[in-house]
Amino acid sequence: MSEIFHHGHPHGRDTAPGDQRLDGSGIAHGVLSYLLGLALAAGLTVASFYFAGSDLIWRPAIPVALVVLAIAQMGVHLVFFLHITSGPESTNNVLALAFGALICFLVIAGSLWIMTVLNHNMMPMPASMHMQH
């Protein structure tokens, strides 16, 4: 696959997201990367489903554990399936990803924050308030 994007001139060094940088043994290396990703992702998934219904860890800590496992699995997918690397040839892809993650964080955390504060301020509705109407 590498001959498509690797033209040999100094400016062709960016890699496309999803493209593997295959040096040497192409096919075996490519399949191995996907196999490794599958094994890691399967392990994290099994751990998630197992912890969700078990008393193995302290019950109130289970949501945190599940979120950590999910974020770890997303990282595995990004590295082994989408081939997002930390190398200089992937800088553009990583920057775009970082911006997307920032927006996702702002949307989700902001919504939860605003609605929690809103509910907190609206909740106390004493009976006397109803009587006045």
């Binding site: 498509i4 994007f5 960016d14 890699t15 496309a16 997201p17 999803g18 493209d19 892809n93 775009a96």
Partner: peptide, 11 residues
């Protein structure tokens, strides 16, 4: 290269 441009846009 076009492959990089196309895939980045889709990304």
């Amino acid at each position: 290269p076009e492959r990089v441009v196309v895939a980045f846009g889709f990304w």
